[in-house]
Design a protein around this nucleic acid. Structure first.
Lengths: 344, 344
DNA sequence: GCTAGCGCTGGCAACGCTGTCAAAGGCGCG
DNA sequence: CGCGCCTTTGACAGCGTTGCCAGCGCTAGC
């Protein structure tokens, strides 16, 4: 019911508009959906009436009638604020450009029920599609279920999972390989590394790429475990710097642990990069803010998110449109924390 | 249509369940909504049938029929990944505990159309309620419109806006006052500050609280402009440290600028905290990762977000429930970047 | 013995929109 | 001049739920 010309509320419906404009609701609907077959004059009248009454269509009703919700979801764990936020920015921006809304569905990577949880979420909320963020995107059971449900999905990860109809695969392995080679070229021979959690395939990729770039196998003592947390980075750095033959370069699998290495080095009076080169991974803001500024590997996260969203929307709009697995190149950002080995 | 016992798809409806269970759809609906008036036996049968068919109710249809969407929205600008992500964590967690989903609606603080944009978003998406994050929560026109639409909203900010039916007001002014007093107690007399963007009321609060704690007025040269960005912090720090009488303490209105101060000091060979004390604001992870670790003010963001969400959901479930404006106390985290002034 | 009241269940309409189909009117073409 | 075709418009039937009210079979109360 329209409540008069002013103070239009949520309760103005398409019927009110149709009545006020003297046309059928179907015609109003056509105008709303920019259907081609509407007379110019009619369209104009309807548009004016809509504006006059302050009407906005109910997405809910539209969803029920059309089978499309104009909602997409992002499935994410929350290990890293920087990554999530950069990705979300790109997704949300693309969504609103296309008239979609974004719903956030958090999950726990370690939870054995993740796939079931995501499925039940999709069934209830009836979103039109999903974007699955790392590391959750490494779980093959999720895209498998989604495909079975017929819901389009896009994964963002460092490895390609055939279960996804569409993926953005960042070449983390290639990037760490390049970083490793760079260190070797600089003259480093005692090169150490702090791993990420081994159950993340991206962590495996980073490790594999880096190790492959080195001339020989890495001594066990140089290969430290880490969990992407600051404290684990501190512990690993302490262990490395306490060795009789400490490394002249340390690659930490994310920026946070790399920052910990720099802090640990500083507290022991080890000069970075004079006595120790340090590199991280993520291209986070943090890397630029610490002293010395951290060499790191940047993923074009916002850009990737935009691409992922565009692909997803294309799949939604046209289910036949074949989408592919896109490789994404990463870039090495060289800063002050890395240099040729100095006085050993 | 049910497609057999296995491979149940999205298309299982309440009708299928009703038929399979031998009851009316109305009864199935009652079971779904945990209505009290259902016989134990009937409930059991229905529940079993639901499980057997793999049925999940359509939130969309429920929304249309009941006038509730079980969707709440968070309205946010994106100035600070750390803040947004901590808040989102609390919101999303509380939502899913209560069976709601979260949709993210980004806005631009500076946009003159923000309020209209939010209104149109609410009208289209028909969310049941909104949580407005800082700094967008400082714009009074937004809650004003929402109240007019009859949509519950909760604001999280550093100042109380009467337009909001419910707010969480963090006492940033009180916290910076305490910080200022602490610096004075430590013996600092030459105290400087780097402001945030003056059009943020929270920045005004932080400034006002800090200045009020000092024994005398702050010299103009000690009061530097900043925009919460790292570079602006660097510039301000450079200006301050170039003075004939450089300050012995600098309070930067956020952690990022404080990190810049520490970096600038280091590059000039100014020892922190020996020659210069530095404090920030935000309690971000960054603060703990830099060297020296940064004294900062922590808002219990995730906790606040949880509280805000609980209040919002209470208002949604029971519109009569009176919600209030809750003051939130912040805590000063003292770390190595702050000490008594040393050799001046 | 009759009615009121209770616990449980079902039928019907509605929520606000779109899909489908068909009708009305105007046009070109043979 | 008549036919078919195209464009514009409308009627009707859903979409999958819930709200409302009625009705069933009982028991309790007068």
């Amino acid at each position: 019911m329209a409540q008069g010309e002013f103070g239009a509320t949520l309760s103005v419906t398409i019927d009110d508009v149709a009545e006020a404009a003297g046309v059928s609701i179907r015609t109003v609907s056509r105008v709303l959906n920019k259907a081609p077959n509407v007379g110019d004059e009619t369209r104009k009248t309807v548009l004016e009436t809509i504006a006059r009454l302050g009407y906005s269509p109910s997405i809910r009703a539209r969803a029920l009638a059309s089978g499309r919700s104009f909602l997409i979801a992002v499935v994410q764990d929350d290990p890293n604020a920087h990554v999530i936020s950069a990705l979300q920015r790109g997704i949300v921006e693309t969504c609103s450009r296309h008239g979609y809304e974004l719903v956030v569905h958090p999950v726990r990577f370690g939870d054995p029920e993740v796939a079931a949880d995501v499925e039940s979420f999709v069934r209830r909320s009836r979103v039109d599609g999903l974007i699955v963020l790392p590391p959750t995107s490494e779980i093959a059971a999720i895209p498998a279920r989604l495909t079975q449900l017929g819901v389009p999905s896009v994964g963002i990860a460092s490895v390609s999972l055939p279960e996804y109809p569409c993926m953005l695969v960042s070449d983390e392995r290639g990037a760490t390989f390049e970083l490793g080679r760079r260190l070797v070229e600089l003259g480093h021979r005692r090169i150490a590394m702090i791993e990420g959690p081994p159950h993340f395939r991206s962590a495996q990729q980073r490790k594999a790429g880096f190790l492959a770039a080195l001339p020989g196998p890495m001594p066990d003592a140089y290969l430290q475990k880490g969990d992407y947390g600051f404290d684990s980075g501190l512990a690993a750095a302490d262990a490395l710097l306490s060795l009789n033959q400490p490394p002249t370069a340390i690659f930490a699998c994310n920026d946070i642990m790399a920052a910990a290495v720099i802090k640990a080095a500083r507290e022991r009076g080890v000069d970075v990069p004079g006595q120790l080169s340090v590199a991280g991974f993520d291209g986070s803001d943090l890397a630029a803010m610490i002293t010395p500024a951290l060499t790191t590997i940047r993923r074009p996260l916002t850009e990737m998110a935009r691409l992922a969203t565009e692909s997803l929307l294309a799949m939604i709009e046209d289910p036949k449109s074949a989408s592919s697995h896109e490789p994404i190149a990463l870039s090495l950002i060289q800063r002050q924390s890395m240099a040729a080995p100095g006085a050993v």
